[in-house]
Amino acid sequence: MRRTGTTRRGALTATGALALGAVLTGCGGGDETADGGKPAHSGARAAAAKTERTLREKAVRDGALLLARYDLVAEAHPATAAGLAPLRAAAVEHGKALAPPRAKDGRKTGPAPAAPGPVSADPKTAVKELATAERRRADAYAEALLNAEPELARLLASVAAAAAAHAYLLTELAEERAA
């Protein structure tokens, strides 16, 4: 006797057909024009590109300030330099990844950031201040996710997570210095 009703194979076939129809519908018709003969979405793309560039440039400036702070702490407290070196190297790579496309060739993207303030005379406090700076960086990148396009948002989320991990590791390093 033949089975009646919905089978698993039939449900999968119907789902696949619906998905294919949705994909084909979404892929067509990129020729719509707005006033002036430009594609209707070109203004949105330009705004998104400007927002992305602004976010990237701010991230690069903030990263440069953080690197300067790492350098100041390592210079003021040489005993911390070995513990800070891998975190500083990761921050350099984050800056390269976040740099706007034009800035990846080595040209500056804007005014140089002002030098960070003085470093604490106590190594433990100096490293804790560095941890606080990393925490602020993680928070800033997490907030920037709200305005970023998907690709940049993924990158910002990754760097924010790394900055949060750096903050944790720096806090642990400060505790080691105290012991």
Rank of each mutant, 00 (worst) to 15 (best):
residue 150 P to H: 10
residue 74 A to F: 01
residue 63 G to I: 04
residue 82 A to Y: 12
residue 153 A to P: 06
residue 94 H to W: 15
residue 74 A to Q: 03
residue 46 A to R: 13
residue 139 D to P: 03
residue 124 K to C: 14
residue 154 R to E: 12
residue 46 A to T: 14
residue 131 A to T: 12
residue 56 R to H: 00
residue 130 L to D: 03
residue 52 E to W: 08
residue 108 K to C: 04
residue 133 A to C: 00
residue 65 L to Y: 01
residue 64 A to F: 03
residue 123 P to C: 06
residue 87 L to A: 01
residue 84 L to A: 12
residue 134 E to R: 09
residue 109 T to N: 01
residue 89 A to M: 09
residue 47 A to L: 15
residue 52 E to D: 14
residue 98 L to M: 08
residue 144 A to M: 06
residue 129 E to W: 04
residue 112 A to M: 02
residue 59 A to E: 14
residue 156 L to K: 06
residue 59 A to L: 13
residue 102 R to E: 14
residue 125 T to G: 08
residue 55 L to E: 07
residue 57 E to S: 12
residue 140 A to R: 11
residue 134 E to C: 05
residue 44 A to N: 10
residue 156 L to E: 04
residue 142 A to Y: 06
residue 114 A to Q: 06
residue 132 T to V: 14
residue 42 S to C: 05
residue 65 L to G: 13
residue 96 K to R: 13
residue 144 A to N: 05
residue 96 K to S: 06
residue 43 G to S: 15
residue 83 G to D: 07
residue 156 L to P: 04
residue 112 A to V: 11
residue 125 T to H: 10
residue 51 T to S: 15
residue 97 A to P: 09
residue 145 L to P: 03
residue 86 P to E: 13
residue 105 D to L: 10
residue 109 T to P: 05
residue 137 R to A: 10
residue 66 L to G: 06
residue 111 P to M: 12
residue 100 P to Y: 11
residue 97 A to Q: 13
residue 49 A to P: 02
residue 87 L to M: 12
residue 115 A to H: 04
residue 148 A to T: 05
residue 73 V to R: 02
residue 123 P to F: 05
residue 132 T to H: 02
residue 87 L to V: 14
residue 75 E to V: 02
residue 54 T to S: 10
residue 107 R to M: 02
residue 81 A to W: 06
residue 125 T to V: 12
residue 56 R to E: 15
residue 94 H to M: 10
residue 125 T to I: 04
residue 124 K to E: 13
residue 47 A to T: 15
residue 67 L to E: 02
residue 79 A to F: 08
residue 115 A to C: 02
residue 128 K to N: 10
residue 80 T to W: 05
residue 74 A to L: 06
residue 58 K to P: 08
residue 67 L to W: 01
residue 121 A to K: 10
residue 137 R to V: 08
residue 57 E to R: 14
residue 126 A to D: 06
residue 134 E to T: 07
residue 127 V to T: 07
residue 49 A to C: 09
residue 69 R to L: 00
residue 98 L to V: 03
residue 140 A to H: 07
residue 116 P to E: 05
residue 143 E to L: 09
residue 94 H to L: 12
residue 53 R to G: 11
residue 124 K to P: 07
residue 59 A to T: 13
residue 47 A to D: 15
residue 109 T to R: 00
residue 79 A to M: 11
residue 123 P to K: 01
residue 153 A to Q: 10
residue 155 L to C: 01
